[in-house]
Amino acid sequence: MRVRYLLRRILQLALTMWLVATIVFLMFRLIPGDPTSTLVDPTFPASLRAEILHRFGLDRPLHEQYLTYLARAVRGDFGWSFYYNSPVVEIVGDMIINTLLLALATFFLTYLFGILGGVVLAWKHGTPVDSVGSLVPLVFRAAPVFWTGMLFLMVFSYRLDWFPHAGIRTAGYAATNLFQKYVSLDFLWHLLLPAVVSTLYYMGLPMLLVRNAMLENFGEEYVEFARARGMSEARVMFRHVLRNALLPVVTSAAVFLGLALGGQIVVEYTFSWPGLGREIVMATQRRDYPVAQAMFLLLAVGVGLMNLLADMVYGYLDPRVRLQ
């Protein structure tokens, strides 16, 4: 049963990705003006343009182009970047790792502090701690994440000079291998500001979920009983109430991963974090459309995989879903 469900979801994902790829193909070709200007630099001389168009098959009919485009995308061949002057595939590797690491760090911090914060809010329910504490995530949710990022840069980077203002490692830092590249103090030092800023932005959701789920549990008899047994309030909160309130939080966590992957663009751009999201912006600004197109497809695949994961987790936790 579960295997069949999984297979069906994977098939659905493949179908969706095909649709996304088709939309991307159409988006980049059916726009006003000369569509090839998005694929071959329009400032090239006419003869050179014609040659390039021919070499990339852009002078062939649309349906033929579409088929070659799909065949290439499946093999991971996304064409040639004007800006880097190299195949797109060669530049994406590090960016995928960088984006994933930032997303994972954000995920970890968001749920660690979100859950702890939610427990505190529920615990102090009805006191000023709760009413002020519930407002804080609302404000960070309403603040554009790039603006919070700018504030952090102004204070912690430019004024106090505690943290670097851009990038992923200090210039001139040479790592001897991939492991050292990412497991180093220098990397963590660069990671902290962007991860904290996106955490502040996302933290509100798990925090309020935990708070509300815990409040619903407060009236239950097992809570009274635990208190009557003379347990400390902290033990009641963490060992008993939180445990029962965690299910909606876990399911939201799986959905969150997909969301964080797609929504990370602005944070990456603000902190010059060399990931997929920042590259979409840079490529769009540079009119380097083969790169923008590839990054968009990669992000869509990432989001799709995360949503698949979310469905699997959800199905595992709530068996009713599996049967549908």
Partner: peptide, 13 residues
């Protein structure tokens, strides 16, 4: 399908 498209990247492009 609309849910499968990353929102901010789509708007930007």
């Amino acid at each position: 399908f609309a849910y499968a498209v990353p929102f901010v990247p789509f708007v930007i492009i």
